[in-house]
Amino acid sequence: MARRFTPKIITTNDLLEGDVIYLTADGSWTRRFSDAKLFLEQAEAEAALARIETRQDIHVGAYLADAETGIDGRPQPVHFREQFRATGPSNYFHGKQAETGDVQVQ
C-alpha cells in the first residue's frame, strides 16, 4: 500500500549565501520556515520541486521536507533536522535564530 502523503515544504540552500531558504506560495524564496508554502498534495509538491530544480543559479540541493501546521496556522518542521536548519546551531546563538528571530522549540 502506498504511504499516505504527509504535508511538505520545499527547502534548499542559497547558492551564494549558503543559508537555508524555503519556497513561498508566490514562487519566491523566504528565510523563515513559517513563511514557506505548505503542500498538501503530492503531485503539486513534486511538480513544484521539478520546476525549481532547474534553477541551479539560485540554490543547491532542493528537496521536500515534512511539515505540519502549528497553532498559529503556519507550517512548522516535523523532524529535528529541519528544526535545526530553521533555527541554527544549539551551541551558539548564530544562524537563523539570530537573523530571523525564529527560535528553537526545545
Binding site: E17, G18, D19, V20, V60, R85, G88, P89, G95, K96
Partner: peptide
C-alpha cells in the same frame, strides 16, 4: 562544481558553507 570545491576545502553544510 562540487568535487572541485571539495578539493579546495569548501563544503555546503546545514546552515552555511
Amino acid at each position: 562544481f562540487k568535487p572541485l570545491r571539495l578539493k579546495n576545502g569548501l563544503y555546503l553544510q546545514l546552515h552555511a558553507y
